[in-house]
Amino acid sequence: MRFIVIGSGRVGLRTARVLREEGHDVTIVERDADRADRASADGFSVVEGDGSHEDVLAKAAVDRADAVGALTGDLNTNFAACMIAKHHGCRTVMRIDEDYREEIYQKYADEVDEIIYPERLGAIGAKNALLGGNIRAIADIAEHLQVLLFTITERSPMRGYTLSEVELPANARLLAFGKRGESMGIPLPDNSLELGDRVAVLADFGVLDDVRQLLVGDDAGETLASAASAGGDA
């Protein structure tokens, strides 16, 4: 897909790199000459200019882009860029600077499809890292729905079984599976669960405890409680 990332600071450049690693075509728009040079040296196609100006986004071929990430630290620039990009039929993602604004933009900004508050994501990551253990909260999908990553331990009741033998509660779905030390992938019925393998599960809060008992065993209650609240209060 074709993406435009506006702003090549700590959030934008990292996003651009991840997209490029996954094989996408990324153009960076950057106002600051030094930063633009750095992004060019990094091999990106760069348009130097203010991403809130239509002629600058036109140079970045906004009319052919699938999505635009307005990821600068300047809210006005980000919002103006989303307005222009939406006008050109792009999906729009806007970075905000304070968490309370998420609610306001979700409600009022039709030009913005998704809102990113990097500090919130960072806080969830930091909390997970501090907790350690074998359960990580990955994302809040809805108020009572969360994606969690479980690591199979010595005590996991399902250790040695295949995925087809794992009977999750009704309000839970297996999303992804990864062998120890390998990347996550689509779960296959004959994948076997061994020590250190990871399983991503979408689960309703009401069945988190059952899922935890099945995949990790009995001694992780506290970790689960902490992990489950990570998204909400981060």
Partner: peptide, 9 residues
């Protein structure tokens, strides 16, 4: 400038 997402109120 607000400090709350409760913009309507």
């Amino acid at each position: 400038k607000a400090a709350s997402g409760d913009a309507d109120r």
